[in-house]
Structure formats: structure tokens, C-alpha cells
């Protein structure tokens, strides 16, 4: 359960203040599938980063699973993020010198999980995302769609309740994009919360709940 109330985010650029978020209030229930759309610069990424605890609000309150996470210090944020949140990015952000398997393993390595346990979980993830053949390949030997699959598997490796995807198909052709969306939606079908930021109306429409942002404010919240 994600509960945002009155979230503000102000960036200072020189002596100018940029209001990226103006009093965003939003509840997301466990297992919901949301899309977040809106024009460029409307604050979608900023909101997603706040939900993902990569950033802190300038004002307002954030509760995650009933716990106030607004004022946690950096290391606590890291630990909460590690356990509860998985990120998928537009540019995949795979570590180029590591193989696909090692990239998927990375969050488990950072969390200090024992190698034996990691190996088992990795085998399961590779099977689940159809990447067995690619485990030993480096990112530059993979297609964009495969890279994003690796990134999704990586986001899922710690079994987080929430997956946040910022324009996950922005760098892929239509067909591959739809493939990747299908993979992401499997997460949601398995009971996870999924938030997808996108510019593509067709992809946005796949979500059961659709948010629209303009100028740092959530202007519409539709569901079917």
C-alpha cells in the first residue's frame, strides 16, 4: 500500500525554483496496475522516483505499507528500496561488463544473499523470463528487448511488491515494446503493484488505472 499526501518537489536551479510536483496526493493499493501519462516535464519521472525512494519530497508525507518513510536516512532508504521496490528504466541500465545472469543477480549480491541461494533464484528467474540461453551473454550481445527482459528479471530478483517502470518501451520498437509490456504485466498478474510511465497512449490504455499529470499535478485518475 502506497500512500502519498500533499507531496511537493521543488528543484532549485540557480535562484529559480522549479515546482516539479505540486501537492500530489495518491493512494495505490497492493496489486494495482497504474499507468502515468502526461506531457514532457509534467513531473512523471519525479513522482516515480519519489515512490521508489530514490528522491525525497520537499514537503508532504509518504507511507509505504503503513510505515512513514518520509524521513528515513539514506541507508534505511536503500534497505527499504532493496526489499520492496524494483526499477525498470528506459535505457535498461545494465552494467556492461557483467553478463545477463550477473546483472540479474546484482540486487541479491548487494543485499548480501548467500551465493548458493542466489544461484537457485537466478536459475528460476532465467527460466521465468526465457533467458536461459542468454545468461552468459553481455548486454552488448543482446537485443533491446532482451536487455529489457534482463532488467525486468533484475527488478524482480528480490521479490519486491512494487515495480516502477519509467518509459520501459521508450527505446524499443512497437512489437518488442508490447512483448516487454506483456512480461511486465505478468508481475502484476502474480500480485505485484505495477506503475508504468509512458508517452504511448496505447500502452497507457492497457492499465486498469490511468493517471494523467500536467504541470506537477495529477489532473485525472481513471479506472475501469
Amino acid at each position: 500500500m502506497i500512500r502519498l499526501s500533499g507531496i511537493e518537489r521543488v528543484f532549485r536551479v540557480g535562484d529559480e525554483a522549479v515546482h516539479a510536483l505540486r501537492g500530489a496526493t495518491l493512494d495505490i493499493n497492493d496489486g494495482e496496475y497504474l499507468s502515468l501519462m502526461g506531457p514532457s516535464g509534467s513531473g512523471k519521472s519525479t513522482l516515480l522516483n519519489l515512490i521508489g525512494l530514490l528522491d525525497r519530497p520537499s514537503a508532504g508525507r509518504y507511507e509505504l505499507d503503513g510505515r512513514d518513510v518520509t524521513d528515513l536516512d539514506d541507508d534505511e532508504l536503500s534497505r527499504v528500496r532493496r526489499e520492496h521496490i524494483g526499477f525498470v528504466f528506459q535505457f535498461f541500465h545494465l552494467v556492461p561488463r557483467l553478463t545477463a545472469g550477473e546483472n540479474i543477480e546484482l540486487p541479491m549480491v548487494l543485499a548480501g544473499i548467500a551465493p548458493e541461494e542466489r544461484r537457485q533464484r537466478l536459475a528460476r528467474l532465467l527460466a521465468e523470463y526465457g533467458l536461459q540461453e542468454r545468461a552468459k551473454h553481455r548486454p552488448d550481445q543482446l537485443s533491446g528487448g532482451q536487455c529489457q527482459r534482463v532488467a525486468i528479471a533484475r527488478a524482480m530478483s528480490m521479490g519486491p511488491g512494487v515495480i516502477l517502470a519509467d518509459e520501459p518501451t521508450g527505446n524499443l520498437d512497437r512489437h518488442t515494446g508490447q512483448d516487454v509490456m506483456a512480461v511486465l504485466e505478468r508481475v502484476h498478474e502474480a500480485g505485484g503493484t505495477l506503475v508504468v510511465v509512458t508517452h504511448d497512449g496505447e500502452i497507457g490504455a492497457r492499465a486498469r488505472r490511468r493517471l494523467r499529470m500536467i504541470d506537477g499535478e495529477i489532473v485525472s485518475d481513471e479506472r475501469n
Binding site: 521508489g52 530514490l54 539514506d74 541507508d75 536503500s78 534497505r79 528500496r81 532493496r82 526489499e83 526499477f87 541500465h93 552494467v95 546484482l106 540486487p107 548487494l110 543485499a111 533484475r154 528480490m158
Partner: peptide, 14 residues
């Protein structure tokens, strides 16, 4: 890469 590691849950100490 460092930003990514943090997004994946690395602490400052890590």
C-alpha cells in the same frame, strides 16, 4: 553505474 547500484539497493557503505 553508481546511480544504478543505489537504485538497486546499494547503501553508501556498499
Amino acid at each position: 553505474e553508481i546511480g544504478l547500484l543505489k537504485a538497486l539497493g546499494a547503501t553508501g557503505g556498499n
